[in-house]
Design a protein around this nucleic acid. Sequence first.
DNA 1: AATGAATGAGAGTTCATTCAT
DNA 2: TATGAATGAACTCTCATTCAT
Lengths: 205, 205, 205, 205
Amino acid sequence: MKPEKTESRRYQKQKLAAIRAAASVFSEKGFHGASTADVAARLGIKQGSLYYYFDSKEEALEEVCLYGLRQYVENMDAIAEGEENFQARLRAVVTNHLGRYREKNEALKVHNDERLYLPPERRVRLKQLGTHYRERLEDIVETGKAEAAVRDEIDSHFMAQSIIGMCNGLGEIIVRDPEADVFELARKCTDLLLHGTAPYHIQGD
Amino acid sequence: MKPEKTESRRYQKQKLAAIRAAASVFSEKGFHGASTADVAARLGIKQGSLYYYFDSKEEALEEVCLYGLRQYVENMDAIAEGEENFQARLRAVVTNHLGRYREKNEALKVHNDERLYLPPERRVRLKQLGTHYRERLEDIVETGKAEAAVRDEIDSHFMAQSIIGMCNGLGEIIVRDPEADVFELARKCTDLLLHGTAPYHIQGD
Amino acid sequence: MKPEKTESRRYQKQKLAAIRAAASVFSEKGFHGASTADVAARLGIKQGSLYYYFDSKEEALEEVCLYGLRQYVENMDAIAEGEENFQARLRAVVTNHLGRYREKNEALKVHNDERLYLPPERRVRLKQLGTHYRERLEDIVETGKAEAAVRDEIDSHFMAQSIIGMCNGLGEIIVRDPEADVFELARKCTDLLLHGTAPYHIQGD
Amino acid sequence: MKPEKTESRRYQKQKLAAIRAAASVFSEKGFHGASTADVAARLGIKQGSLYYYFDSKEEALEEVCLYGLRQYVENMDAIAEGEENFQARLRAVVTNHLGRYREKNEALKVHNDERLYLPPERRVRLKQLGTHYRERLEDIVETGKAEAAVRDEIDSHFMAQSIIGMCNGLGEIIVRDPEADVFELARKCTDLLLHGTAPYHIQGD
DNA sequence: AATGAATGAGAGTTCATTCAT
DNA sequence: TATGAATGAACTCTCATTCAT
């Protein structure tokens, strides 16, 4: 009769709502700039009641970060496991990455901007997910080598980090300019990664 | 001829020391994690005395950010005004950018990580400098086109942002791995930007 | 014949269990250090359900104290009503008193340590029992005088309080040293009370 | 010029006043029943300012306990080092002990009633002092044996604890009855300890 | 130019208590 | 008879800021 296992459907739903409320508030004001009262207010409950769902403000931050990362990583897994060629997969990765600056993915933004305020113990699961993300991307780079779409001397760790960084940099454009076309940017970014700046058929250096 | 009153030589020196102390403390603990007492202690004075040099903690943050950004932007100006060819200048830019993850440039780190905690009014001068940095980089990209080292269809704003992002991404590697060779990374990064991943002479897509 | 409504057998049983759970928790953590959630958990129910048995946390404390004191006072009554001589009864009193530091008599410990946190209104019944205890002990002292085992000039109120205090002091030894022999201590204590420190047959002062 | 060593006379004075204010408030309401606001109010400052003198409420409690114990232990040292005979010293000890229930020695009361709320780390110095007190008392008992005023078979640890306990028990009388004559009580207590209840020259058991 | 002392506002957190179910 | 959920008031503690000296 009692809901034991699942901690009751209602609880699960409210907890998710709480995570989303926290994501929303943290992304707006920053972790330190936001108060637990702000989060509670967004959820429509009183401050103290928030502690029914989180043991501490820090735990809330951790849960928000995990929530934000998870979907994102799952997308990467799907791409990595797909059958497409290197170029197609690279573009999928870039699109996934850039897309999050348009979608209202507040939880991921919180992860990017605020995770440093977590104490190391609370960052381990986050780091695992992040490392997993990068490793899958490295796998994709390796398959690129196998397809002869990537030069052999390119280190895949270096490459993965470069891709991630470039996408984050372009994210700025998307955030600054609400008119920017994400797909067009993704196309250009992929092209730059594949061919560099130099005119085709001409090699400098 | 002697320095008068509030803007005496001594004051200027201590003020600079105060900015550096704040940079050091903010970079270690984050703006919100650091207290004015921490900053004062690093400077060797007492908490209240700090207000002789800053009107508020926020002003201290602003000054730190400006201080950090300025040097960095000046380097960029020097590169942009130089006479070298595109490849050489690109490498100089990348090296300058990556170098700051090794050099103990605390003020710049504070700018990167903490500037968001400034209220918009306090961010305008910062934005001006940042924009200036990017625009100089765009200029360099344009000269690259003139030299036929950069394809014409590449948008220089897009390109500048991509370079900045990629460098930031590689900064992670440098921070994570104290053994990483910054100059080697800069070389590989420049190469990737120039030629992409694809084997020379082969064009995909 | 069947138990009706609120005072059903089941209720009585659970209420007693609740008092014991509270005693156990309060004695471990102190009244203020323990939460109603702790008490509920020990009883195996949920926090809110506790209020089915107690109107407030304070009422719980009062009931625990009364429960603890009652048994203890009943023992005293039995001793006082017994037929033994003064020495034997004194030893019984001391043994009863010291024994509670060994037996897991949590409710009594709570009475001793935490009763002060009750508001005066809630302390009256407790004081009655305590006074009753001391008065019975005074009665015993009086019978000691009748038996010529106690000097006439010894005030029985003073004496009762001295006995209680000495026993409490020795309780410390029992608590500190789990090996301490309670019966041996009780014997020595009784002896000290009867004969003092001075060698037999020699009178100082 | 700067007050370095002594943390300034003014600070020392206010800190002492803070300890006394805390003693007064804790003894009235108990540690948990008293708020830091209460203590600050008694001192005539605002709540937050209290933290200029204490790092935490717990530290305040520790300092109060230490303050209360110290004087008391010093008295014991003086008695133990004196040259008087056993009876005189025992009476001095008892008088010192009982006297504190009359003197407004709030700090010692706090030590007795509230020290358990300190975490073990904070109790070590207290325990050292307490142990020291008891050991000096044991020394006195030993000298009593040397003087043949105490039977050889009486264990001095047991004896010390008995004396302490009896005094605490009689403290109740003093607290309950403001008219009670402390010196008369001390005399009777000493007498009881020396000669027991039994009529002089008669040995029971 | 610097300090000691104090302030006051606000934070996160805890918890006894309530009540519809 | 018991629960889950929520409440609200209190509490300890932190800290940027002020100011007389």
